[in-house]
Design a protein around this nucleic acid. Structure first.
Lengths: 114, 114
DNA sequence: CTGTATCCTCCAAGATACTG
DNA sequence: CAGTATCTTGGAGGATACAG
């Protein structure tokens, strides 16, 4: 998931910052904990993940719930607003899938490899 | 159009760089010249506009045609690929229109004015 | 008119180390 | 475990001046 080799970052469509969209996808099927999120988002640093999560929270896209206990435990979950973003994201993905080749060909022809 | 007072830049959905999407909208109804583009895109500097146009060209979204003559004249036009981006852009706009209030409320509640 | 060439500032993003 | 604190770097974006 989100393999850096699969350069999904080449789409001209972006949601919020670099991770915003991916985090929403990660929460699509239920709440996740801080460190659970770091697995699919390979290589994201704690600082950056925290900042993205705060941004999503500020925008009303996710909720943050801290469970007390001997070991810390924080869960992030999508709000209805955050879930509603899945729709335009699907449109973006549909476009990307359909025009992926065209886009790559154009870039390659322009001398920009990768 | 693209009035800086209407803060359309607050949507969490972006196409390419800051101007990429707006340029595509400007070309929606026919080719435009370099300086024609600078009118709706208030305040964009020549350098930045050039960079965005080059990026769109590199991605196969627009074409650049220079007409020879005593006065220079360059026209930019959408390719089919560029035109195809209008579809996910419409989806993004539909989302923004529908959830605009929700988004603003969330940000305001988070203490982030504007 | 359609750009280049410089210079400057800001911030996203990453690396690393540390904390309750 | 879930972060915060620092530091660094790259590139976006803008201002201004100049060129073919």
């Amino acid at each position: 998931m989100f393999d850096p080799v699969c350069p999904s970052g080449l789409t001209p469509i972006r949601f919020g910052d670099k991770w915003y969209g991916m985090i929403i996808r990660c929460l699509e099927h239920g709440p996740r904990r801080f460190s659970e999120l770091r697995v699919p988002l390979r290589g994201i640093s704690a600082k950056v993940l925290t900042r993205s999560l705060r941004a999503l929270e500020r925008d009303g896209m996710i909720t943050r719930t801290a469970y007390p206990g001997p070991v810390q435990r924080v869960e992030y979950d999508l709000t209805p607003l955050g879930r509603s973003l899945l729709e335009p994201m699907a449109a973006a993905c549909a476009w990307a899938e359909k025009h992926w080749e065209e886009l790559l060909d154009a870039r390659e022809a322009a001398g920009h490899p990768r």
